[in-house]
């Protein structure tokens, strides 16, 4: 029984890493007032670039760097259109997902079925020997450890540093921030870029570690689930742990039911659950609308320009 639960918990963490990273990246972007619905596209491009770089160089470091940068690079398209040209943020984000999916499918076609670099679980000495906890948290891939560090770091930067204060000010009231001498465009561009890096890293995790290899649409909507989780965790990176774990937990249950060939719940219902649960989460959050209103950055989705 304990073993089963440990197994489920370990897989839950494993399955939540990509959503967690993408959510935190999205929080950074949205806190500056820019909505980016292109996370799914950036994840796919990151997954492909990471896999391709690993395939050609056999170097895990190059692979991770390439995947992360690819996500960041694609995000700059969104930054250019929404910040410099003031295009509609919803549409630009959707276009980014379409473009990213197209790029990944097109460029990745020759790589389907190829082998690349694989980043395996790396138990941390001593810590992984702790009963249960060690197995669950410290027998994971380096991506999970990176997430353990990046998530609190993102919270710290956002809420405890001057940089974070400026970023949030731009998201809450761009006009006032502008009057106070903040470069709104630059701040927003950097925030979008950092969000892109996180999404790229999330995608890289999928293609190098979680399900090594390249498959078209291998993100399976995790980018969209991340966007829902941003709302669920009230734009707070620390709460993103819980949001992502909800998703990871359901995925782990699927594995568990399959592995033990228990058919209490039909497999297609299990497959639907992460999406249905995410919708349920959105409903809950909206039902307590005070929670959402106060938490959402006030200038989210509002383009900024100086009237002359």
């Amino acid at each position: 029984m304990i073993e089963d639960l440990t197994f489920i918990a370990q897989i839950s963490i494993k399955s939540s890493v990509a959503v967690l990273l993408a959510t935190v990246g999205g929080i950074i972007t949205e806190r500056s007032g820019v909505l980016n619905l292109g996370i799914e596209g950036m994840m796919l491009v990151g997954a492909l670039a990471g896999f391709a770089a690993g395939h050609f160089t056999q170097s895990p470091v190059v692979a991770v760097a390439a995947g992360t940068m690819a996500g960041g690079a694609l995000s700059l398209v969104h930054a250019f259109f929404t910040i410099a040209l003031r295009s509609n943020q919803v549409l630009s984000g959707l276009a980014l997902t379409i473009l990213g999916t197209g790029l990944a499918n097109f460029l990745g076609r020759p790589l389907i079925g190829q082998t690349g670099v694989r980043i395996r679980q790396l138990p941390i000495p001593y810590l992984s020997d702790i009963p249960v906890i060690g197995e669950v948290f410290f027998n994971q891939s380096p991506f999970a450890y990176a997430a353990y560090l990046l998530v609190p770091l993102a919270w710290f930067v956002l809420f405890r540093t001057r940089t974070g204060l400026v970023l949030r000010a731009v998201g809450e009231d761009a006009r006032s921030a502008d009057v106070a001498g903040v470069n709104v465009e630059l701040t927003r561009t950097l925030s979008v870029f950092v969000g892109g890096l996180f999404a790229g890293l999330a995608g890289t995790y999928l293609s190098l570690s979680y399900t090594p290899g390249w498959k078209e649409t291998m993100t399976g909507g995790q980018g969209w689930i991340a966007i829902a989780m941003i709302i669920f965790c009230t734009w707070n990176p620390l709460l993103a742990f819980f949001g992502a774990l909800l998703f990871g937990g359901l995925t782990a249950l699927q594995f568990f039911f399959q592995a033990t060939s228990m058919d209490l719940i039909p497999s297609y219902v299990l497959k639907m659950l992460p999406y249905l649960l995410t919708i349920g989460v959105l409903v809950l959050v909206s039902a307590s609308s005070r929670h959402r209103k106060s938490a959402s950055p006030a200038d989210l989705g509002v383009p900024f320009y100086r009237e002359l």
């Binding site: 259109f81 630009s92 276009a95 473009l99 197209g102 790029l103 097109f106 076609r109």
Partner: peptide, 14 residues
Amino acid sequence: PSSISLILEGALLF
């Protein structure tokens, strides 16, 4: 690969 049309679709929108 015919997925070129998906890229061009995204480019159309941008």
